[in-house]
Write a protein that binds this DNA or RNA. Structure first.
Lengths: 233, 233
DNA sequence: AGTCTTAATATGTACAGACATATACATATT
DNA sequence: AATATGTATATGTCTGTACATATTAAGACT
């Protein structure tokens, strides 16, 4: 059976998704191989391959060489969330952005930071604390440690003009990073810097970025009460 | 100048990433076009295309027809986080998984749920409250509303045998969904169901899934204290 | 100067054919 | 019975060519 021309990979993808959603192909079921589908759709195998790879990336198909392609039984949906550049996030809401530094000095880091950044004891770290402000109200506070060995240039940056984050993304490209999302309670120092009462539940992001095996920076972001991070699957 | 053989797309990708990280190609800079790179690397243009598309997907390159490919100035890093199937998350830590239902009955939903699911007033909703347990300790509580019009079969499911979530992922495939991550404070009812004291900050996920324009289910997950959701970029 | 048309160009995609590679399954060996 | 080896197969990828499409830039025409 040769279906009407499905001769581009987006069309193949749509057809495949439709068959999965309509349960014509049920969860766990082995679907026809690429060559057969190419024949059925009247297109090249490469086109089917492109489409199936795309669907597999989204988690709806499991593919294995020789074993074939089957519909995922419990599709692990992958949400891609773009890590916000705070200023852009605020400006995209048509709010005015500003930024203030609480302190910025070279300090001995606490143990958990040193462990997290996998440092030996020799590195000098810049401890940088600041707040991003939307329409005059504290939006998120940032508590950052920067490895001066990894980015010596940062010692001469004027942080009244550009935020540490933006300087770093522009000047210290990283190869990889890890992120943890969590909830934290507003203690006195957090509450004061966010201009709120203590005891509230706050959304927090902890991120460490690396240049290969060298830690560049570890930052802890604590958002204002009620903040939600949203995305789609 | 023809570099030594870089004749597969992973190698091209690695070379491109290396040039970006080493700042041989600086942020904002226009990189050579696909044909030139293919010539330089000694491979086909399609191979370069595959690699550049991959790098662009990760956010490090901006590509535009005719305009060419340039290094992203502020790379919006995309973190892909796989939405956890709770049972698997627990079992992957070698903890024993169990599951208990607090209540499961057809109810009139509160307004914000109805709005969120974009329902008119006629639909009947199943309100399902449960807890997922790891090694005997409450791991996450789930407060779920299910649109019976969208999945009538669920009325006959025995939730003592399979969790609502797992039944739904297996039997009610969705086309899209939206997710919000936030922090919430443990009120009395949450604290009781999680077996903790009130007042703690808890990580929460709110997810609504759709079959095209029909809402299938809206679920609110509230995790045990200290829970972190982790990923990499 | 301003607007429309046209050509040039870089990426996007399709195709057929080929080879590479992982691996399930069958068969042979210990 | 357990282990090693071989083979068939489905996906993974590369190549070279071709055409599609978006978009910039130049040129023609008000």
């Amino acid at each position: 059976m040769t279906t009407a021309n499905i001769n581009n990979w987006k069309a193949v993808e749509a057809e495949v998704l439709s068959r999965i959603h309509s349960r014509q192909w049920e969860p766990g079921q082995l679907i026809p191989n690429e060559s057969d589908l190419a024949l059925e759709f009247g297109c090249a195998r490469a086109t089917v391959n492109r489409a199936l790879r795309s669907v597999a990336e989204s988690g709806l198909l499991d593919r294995k060489r020789k074993a074939g392609t089957r519909v995922a039984t419990n599709p692990v949906r992958k949400a891609t969330l773009s890590i916000p550049v705070i200023r852009e996030e605020i400006e995209s809401r048509n709010q005015t952005y500003s930024y203030a530094v609480f302190s910025s000095k070279i300090e001995e880091p606490p143990l958990h930071i040193r462990a997290n950044m996998r440092l030996n004891s020799s590195e000098r770290l810049l401890h940088h604390q600041s707040v991003h402000i939307a329409d005059g109200k504290p939006y998120v506070i940032s508590d950052r440690w920067i490895n001066l060995e990894a980015v010596p240039d940062i010692a001469h940056v004027d942080f009244s003009r550009v935020s540490a984050n933006e300087w770093l993304v522009a000047n210290a490209p990283f190869t990889n990073g890890d992120i943890a999302f969590s909830a934290t309670i507003a203690n006195d120092s957090i509450a004061e810097r966010l201009g709120i009462k203590g005891g509230e539940a706050l959304f927090a992001i902890d991120r460490t970025t690396w240049n290969n095996d060298t830690a560049i920076t570890a930052v802890s972001l604590v958002f204002h009460p009620g903040y939600q991070m949203r995305t789609v699957v």
